[in-house]
Amino acid sequence: MSQQVRGVIARGKGEPVQVETIVVPDPGPGEAVVKVQACGVCHTDLHYREGGINDDFPFLLGHEAAGVVESVGEGVEDVAPGDFVILNWRAVCGQCRSCRRGRPQYCFATHNAKQKMTLLDGTELSPALGIGAFAEKTLVAAGQCTKVDPAASPAAAGLLGCGVMAGLGAAINTGGVGRGDTVAVIGCGGVGNAAVVGARLAGAAKIIAVDIDPRKLVTARGLGATHTVDSSSGDPVEEIRALTGGNGADVVIEAVGRPETYRQAFYARDLAGTVVLVGVPTPEMTLELPLLDVFGRGGALKSSWYGDCLPSRDFPMLIDLYLQGRLDLDAFVTETIALDDVEQAFARMHDGDVLRSVVVF
């Protein structure tokens, strides 16, 4: 029997979000209903509200979440009612060419729930990243539920569902940061600071955090950056070079998603170094680089989508590190808020004084 719960809806481009009653159907084959315990307010949700992803309004926002499986549909074997799970937007299919080549972290056909959640009048909702977790309960594909140790705080664990995983993975998975490497991170919001943490976990010897906001640089220091660069008052490329013996960093992670900062990342890397783009650009942005410089500098230019993570592999491992005290996920939770406070959290995001606001149910 379907259920009625409260959820945060974006009805039109740029319009303030509203908390409305939504209808969550019983799970069908391969689906699960999850009682959401916490959901982070991610910049991607704001992109949805602003029409920056697509125009499939109305959206049910929220995707960076953890909760407890309430019920499952036919054929679901990997999770069961009562399991504590992190929701993910990479439920691998197992059948596409990437999965068959042993690269499921690049799956081209990830699963979402086939049924739609709706408003009371029957209007179908588009769940953000196939999840829609700014709601008391949500319907997802069972493969979007990754079982982890229930001792973890839901507010902290849910952040692995998107932003923290994106940054950690950009350093560890995509960038391949290793022991003794020098790493620069340009843009120290939630994703960039997670990249700082990832570089530290991987054993980087020097981690240079770059931002125009001194508050974010203070946070980056607390999370493991060994050096900081305020790019509002100097050339970050020259400063990164000065901190690396004139060579540039082995890995430069661009966590802003702008052509200007990408060019900085490109020229701030060492010869044969790696640039990782994890910041999300907007559709109209273009990039121009001298092709001879691309050729002459060697190395690798990579994009990191979801930190190139495999949730079934990475989430349980990172939660274990969290419970051992080796990964401070709690440091990313700036504030906990109620469901009705999401619009205000978007405003705080613009002000730049939060890593994450987290809705707690």
Rank of each mutant, 00 (worst) to 15 (best):
D149N: 13
L60P: 12
L339P: 09
D121F: 02
N54E: 10
H47M: 15
Y306A: 09
M165G: 08
L46S: 12
P16Q: 06
V185N: 06
E20Y: 02
A133M: 02
L223V: 03
D341F: 01
T146A: 07
L61S: 10
R179D: 10
P150K: 12
V177I: 14
V140R: 12
M317A: 15
D250I: 01
N112L: 10
V41H: 15
P154A: 00
P281G: 04
I53N: 05
V278Q: 03
T244S: 00
G28C: 00
M1T: 07
E284L: 07
R200K: 15
A338S: 15
V342Q: 07
R269H: 00
E343W: 00
T123E: 04
E15A: 12
G298P: 10
E77Q: 09
L129D: 08
R297G: 05
V280W: 11
Q344P: 06
A10Q: 03
V252Q: 13
G175E: 10
P81R: 14
G298I: 05
C107F: 04
A142C: 02
V19D: 09
D341N: 08
M317T: 14
V8F: 03
F57E: 03
T146R: 13
V17C: 08
L129R: 04
L160N: 08
H350D: 11
N54K: 08
V278E: 06
V183S: 08
G190W: 11
Q344E: 14
P259N: 03
V183K: 07
G67I: 02
Q144N: 15
K216Q: 10
N247A: 15
I240G: 01
L223D: 04
R97M: 11
Q115R: 15
D340A: 14
G175V: 03
A113R: 07
D213K: 15
I207R: 06
D78T: 14
L289D: 02
I186C: 10
F332A: 10
R356L: 01
S357Y: 04
D78N: 05
G307Y: 01
V252K: 09
C309Y: 12
G158F: 00
C309L: 13
P259K: 13
A205V: 05
D121I: 02
W305I: 13
V68L: 05
F84A: 05
A135K: 09
P290F: 05
A113Y: 09
G143N: 13
S2M: 11
A265N: 07
A151G: 07
G176E: 12
P290I: 04
G224R: 09
K13N: 04
D353M: 00
A225K: 06
R200C: 02
C99V: 10
R97D: 13
R348K: 14
A38Q: 12
G176I: 02
P25W: 00
A166T: 15
Q264N: 08
E343D: 15
V5F: 00
G130S: 06
D149L: 02
A152E: 05
A338N: 15
D250Y: 03
A38V: 04
G132L: 04
T282M: 03
Q3K: 12
A255W: 13
G246H: 08
F266E: 11
A133P: 04
V276R: 06
Q324M: 12
A91N: 13
I86W: 04
G198C: 02
C107A: 09
G67E: 06
A65H: 00
L160K: 06
A300N: 12
G132W: 03
L168A: 01
T244L: 00
T282D: 07
S304A: 10
